[in-house]
Amino acid sequence: MPESKLGLLQGTLDVMVLQTLAAMGPQHGYGIARRIEQVSGDEILLNQGTIYASLVRLQHRGWIRAKWGASENKRKAKFYSITPKGRVRLGQDVAYWQRLADVMGRVLASRARENGNA
C-alpha cells in the first residue's frame, strides 16, 4: 500500500546512499536503489529515479566517485564508490541521525506515558 510507505525526509536519501556504498562497496544506481528498498523492508516510498539527483549531488561534494563499468551480468553501468571524505561525512551524519532518533524516541515515549496516565 503506497499510503503506508514512509515519505523521505529531506537529506535522508543522501545518508542512505552513502551508507549503502560504505557497506557494499562500489555499486550502480539500480543496485543502490534496490538495496535501500530491501534494507528498509520496502517501507520507504522511493522513486528510483530520484537516486540519481542524490548521486550527482554527492559526487559534486566529493563524497563519492563514479566510473563506468560492467555489471555481473555484463550490462554496462556506472559504478559509484565512497571516498575517504565521504566516509568522514557519513560518520558525522550517522552520529547526527542517531542522536536525533534517540531524542525523538525519548520525546515520543514520554508522550506515550502521558497518554497512558490519562
Partner: peptide, 17 residues
C-alpha cells in the same frame, strides 16, 4: 513504475547538477 517518471528524474538531476 518503480523508476517514477524519467522526465522528472532528469529535471531533478539537472537541478542538483
Amino acid at each position: 513504475a518503480k523508476f517514477g517518471g524519467v522526465e522528472a528524474a532528469r529535471e531533478e538531476h539537472r537541478d542538483a547538477r
